[in-house]
């Protein structure tokens, strides 16, 4: 069973009268010779890992070995100033929490990468908190996100060294946007529109982490990725169109990734990594390794 475009998956859903989660369940069961229970128990483990990583980052001391991250998730979560009420504040704190746990050698589920691992957990936990979505339903939400990731991986790239941060937090935001639309009862068309919005907002985002570590700016870009996912899902659910069909947007991310200088793609040679302060931090962190 093969899907090469998001349009293929939508077509399969229309033909088989299934939703996108069921389509991806069929895909995984057929290709990997797994039972329905196998797939769902795998998804449960992913969800548990995601929930645990959010919880850890919000409750435990998390100071990364480099010192660049220092309990930021709790700082945001407990902040008295709220730009848009408590919901957005808490949602982005959850993404930062996972980024901090990851930097401190905690357990995370890459989704799709370790560097972008905060976005899906933050969105899923927020959907439980704010919309009372049952946890069982979140597993279907994960299946929908995997449809987006699968097609993005085929036609673009998750690797920061190939597609920059667009390939990491950009694709994660697109996956999460699809999940939100699905969990709020949106149509397949709306799911695809949301993916398009999220990717267009991430187009050309560079991968320039300071010292090559998955900390700065990765962690705060995860927070922005959560906001992107909710904004994109909101626009799609309201019924506005992304104009460029989503599969064409994905091909555009591939073109943009190819056009981006290697200096801006996880090489530590450009962007924030190449600032004076970025270089100073790198020297301090790695002075014993030279």
């Amino acid at each position: 069973m093969e899907f090469n475009l998001l349009a293929d998956i939508a077509e399969y859903c229309a033909r088989e009268k299934k939703d996108m989660a069921q389509a991806m369940l069929d895909y995984e069961m057929k290709n990997k010779h797994l039972s329905r229970e196998d797939v769902y128990s795998g998804l449960k483990r992913v969800l548990l890992t995601m929930e645990d990583s959010v919880e850890q980052g919000l409750t435990q001391m998390v100071i990364s070995p480099s010192g660049m991250l220092n309990n930021w998730a709790k700082t945001v979560y407990n902040s008295k100033t709220e730009t848009l009420g408590p919901r957005l504040k808490k949602a982005i704190a959850r993404a930062i929490a996972v980024g901090e746990v990851n930097a401190c050698m905690g357990k995370i589920a890459a989704a799709p990468t370790a560097g972008s691992a905060g976005i899906m957990p933050a969105v899923l936990v927020t959907m439980i908190e704010e919309h009372n979505i049952p946890r069982e339903k979140l597993l279907d939400g994960l299946l929908v996100s995997s449809a987006v990731g699968l097609i993005f991986a085929k036609n673009s790239s998750f690797a920061g060294s190939e597609a920059g941060c667009m390939g990491e937090t950009g694709s994660a935001a697109a996956m999460a946007a699809a999940t939100i639309v699905y969990l709020l009862g949106g149509t397949n068309d709306q799911i695809l529109e949301a993916v398009g919005f999220a990717l267009k907002a991430s187009m050309g985002l560079v991968c320039d982490p300071v010292g090559g570590l998955v900390e700065e700016p990765c962690t705060t870009r995860n927070a922005v990725g959560v906001a992107n996912a909710f904004v994109s899902a909101q626009m799609a659910l309201a019924g506005i169109k992304s104009l460029i069909p989503v599969d064409e947007v994905i091909f555009a991310t591939k073109e943009v990734g190819d056009l981006m200088s290697p200096r801006l793609k996880e090489s530590g040679q450009g962007g924030l990594a190449n600032t004076k302060t970025g270089r100073d931090i790198q020297k301090r962190v790695f002075r014993t390794a030279e």
């Binding site: 483990r45 992913v46 995370i108 589920a109 890459a110 990468t113 370790a114």
Partner: peptide
């Protein structure tokens, strides 16, 4: 895509 489940920070 949803994984690996791993100890961070880098796959």
């Amino acid at each position: 895509i949803l994984g690996p489940i791993m100890i961070g920070p880098s796959s």
